[in-house]
Write a protein that binds this DNA or RNA. Structure first.
Length: 547
RNA sequence: GGCCCCAUCGUCUAGGUAGGUCUAGGACACCGGGUUUUCAACCCGGCGACAGGGGUUCAAAUCCCCUUGGGGCUACCA
């Protein structure tokens, strides 16, 4: 390949970076890195109504979290800027003018309603809707008059009707389309902005894009874009297209942002007594909005959804990249897992780090069929990467996670955090690690007792009596090292002719309130004598009636 | 409805371009057992697929056609 590879990721800033978008970005980035080419980021913000002010910043933050850096684009600049389409209007207008002058594009004056009616008519006749090109193309004067009259003016591309359009796809081979079925599509909207199909072609040309890896949902746009490209640019052929499989959700259907609110709604419906006022307060919305949401009429913003879910302890399916961060996943995991959604290295490797991914990546190994997003497998991958990633990196990511969830654990120093991580070898996510270690950072009086744990452990046999003895032995130990604690507990268990569990579990529940925690010897050691004894005393006091 | 894409274990997939070496391999999940101070992790074992029907061929998971099923697109969204 004599020519340097140039790929791009071109999201529209309508929300957070979605797992599907992230995968597209990753593949383009991987291909550029593999070939020593360039990867650029372009923001497709040509729809004023849908743009969200913070989306671009969020998308960039998410890409960086994943380790995907762009060689050209917003914030890093480059020779082909600006990289925001909303700032390139004059460029698009020049090309639209050119097409108009050449008679390869023309004005239209239909309203949305008129178009809808035409579409409904086509539907009735069981045919696909194709805009009928007028015999006589409207002039600039016609357009001017329409504008003065307050009518909508759009510009359509006059699709050449010469033979089938054949798209060469790296993954799918040659795909043939009938231009008559494609029709004359709009290239400039009545607000003066270009449509996606037009802006993409101009920018891909001007930015020297050589390879376009994108989701299969763009396959139908490709013949239109190819026709436009060939009408506009003759010195260079269209880029190499590769239309990747789509990722679908394990809940069935497409992976969609709607899944999160839907999950919450379902959980809410299953709840006996919904306290609307309280939920409204935690969500920062009104009680009526909560009712409307429950009824399925409206959907509040994502932060409100997230806050209510967190308050209720409902786990929402992760969809956006930030969701995975919030759930305690490593970026290394996400990158590895996404790479395997529609691609594989051709051997039996699955767990791979970034460098390995770059070295192994190849267009010829992209798969054709859609894949389901399997969260259980993702969990298994995260477990592996938690082990594989350097302790320094894991520590840094853990700290970021703790800060975000505002865990009491975030107050710990690096040495303690590192020790906790090490003790949690085999944990699946940071959420697990946090849950197992949070008891150390709670006030002794703050420990909440899990009802099941109390029944299963504290209310059994002579658990409280054993706990009292453990307390006394602990008080008598000269030093609370893990070894000393272990030795003491084992001796005690042996003397009583019971398993270590019978001794360790009551102690665990006394210290943490649950049966799930860090290893017990370390738990005691971290807490120290005073706090350990205090927690045991509080437990004995609280449950003495049952003893 | 129209146009387009796809089809191997429950899931992700290897194998398909050069048909035999595939009684179809791996991973996750699941089931059983082991280990164990909790959860997880870990170890051993097991279950489990070429969507259906026609061709082509000595031979088809692999090539062709049809059916069925799944997905995408069908906007002055991207």
């Amino acid at each position: 390949m004599p020519e340097t590879v140039v790929t791009r990721f071109a999201p529209s800033p309508t929300g957070y970076l979605h797992i599907g978008g992230a995968r597209t970005a990753l593949f383009n980035w991987l291909w550029a890195r593999r070939t020593g080419g360039k990867f650029l980021l372009r923001i497709e913000d040509t729809d004023l109504k849908r743009n969200t002010p913070t989306a671009t910043a969020q998308v960039m933050a998410d890409l960086r979290w994943l380790g995907i850096e762009w060689d050209e684009g917003p914030e890093v600049g480059g020779p082909n800027g600006p990289y925001l389409q909303s700032q390139r209007l004059d460029i698009y207008n020049r090309y639209i003018r050119q097409l108009l002058d050449q008679g390869r594009a023309y004005y239209c004056f239909e309203t949305g309603q008129e178009l809808d009616a035409l579409r409904a008519e086509a539907e009735k006749q069981k045919k696909g809707f194709v805009y009928r090109r007028p015999e006589q193309l409207p002039t600039d004067q016609d357009a001017e008059r329409a504008r003065v009259e307050g009518r909508d003016v759009t510009v359509r591309f006059a699709m050449p009707q010469t033979g089938p359009i054949v798209v060469d796809d790296v993954i799918r081979g040659q795909i043939s389309f009938d231009p008559a079925e494609l029709g004359d599509f709009i290239i400039q909207k009545s607000d003066g902005f270009p449509t996606y199909n037009f802006a993409v072609v101009v920018d891909d040309y001007l930015m020297g894009i050589t390879h376009v890896l994108r989701g299969q949902e763009h396959l139908m746009n490709t013949p239109s874009q190819k026709a436009l490209w060939e009408a506009l640019f003759t010195d260079r052929p269209v880029p190499q297209y590769a239309h990747m499989s789509v990722t679908v959700s394990d809940a069935g259907g497409k992976l969609s942002k709607r899944e999160r609110p839907q999950t919450l709604r379902t959980a809410l419906k299953a709840t006996a007594n919904v306290d609307f006022d309280q939920l409204a307060q935690v969500g920062g919305i009104t009680a009526d909005e909560v009712r409307s949401f429950l009824a399925g009429d409206t959907t509040p913003d994502m932060p409100a959804i997230d806050a209510i879910a967190k308050h209720l302890g409902v786990h929402l399916p992760e969809i956006n990249i930030v969701d995975f961060f919030h759930s305690g996943y490593l970026p290394e995991t996400m990158v590895n897992f996404m790479a395997l959604l529609g691609w594989n290295p051709g051997d039996q490797r699955e767990i791979m780090v970034l460098d390995e991914l770059i070295r192994s990546f190849d267009l010829s190994r992209l798969t054709k069929s859609n894949s389901l997003f399997d969260r259980k497998k993702l969990l298994a991958f995260n477990t592996e990467h938690l082990r594989l990633t350097s302790p320094e990196k894991v520590l840094a990511h853990f700290k970021a996670y703790l800060r975000h969830v505002e865990s009491p654990v975030r107050g710990a120093d690096d040495a303690l955090l590192a020790r906790i991580i090490k003790l949690c070898d085999g944990a699946r996510t940071f959420e697990d690690i946090e849950r197992k270690s949070v008891f150390v950072f709670l006030d002794d009086e703050q420990i909440a007792f899990d009802e099941k744990a109390v029944q299963k452990v504290l209310m059994k046999d002579r658990a409280l009596e054993i706990l009292r003895q453990v307390r006394d032995e602990l008080a008598a130990l000269p030093e609370l090292t893990e070894q000393a604690i272990e030795e003491m507990l084992r001796k005690l268990a042996e003397a009583r002719q019971v398993g270590l569990g019978k001794v360790a579990q009551p102690l665990r529940v006394a210290l943490c309130g649950t049966t799930i925690s860090l290893p017990i010897f370390d738990s005691v050691n971290m807490l120290g004598r005073e706090r350990t004894l205090r927690r045991i005393d509080l437990t004995l006091e609280r449950f003495k009636a049952h003893g």
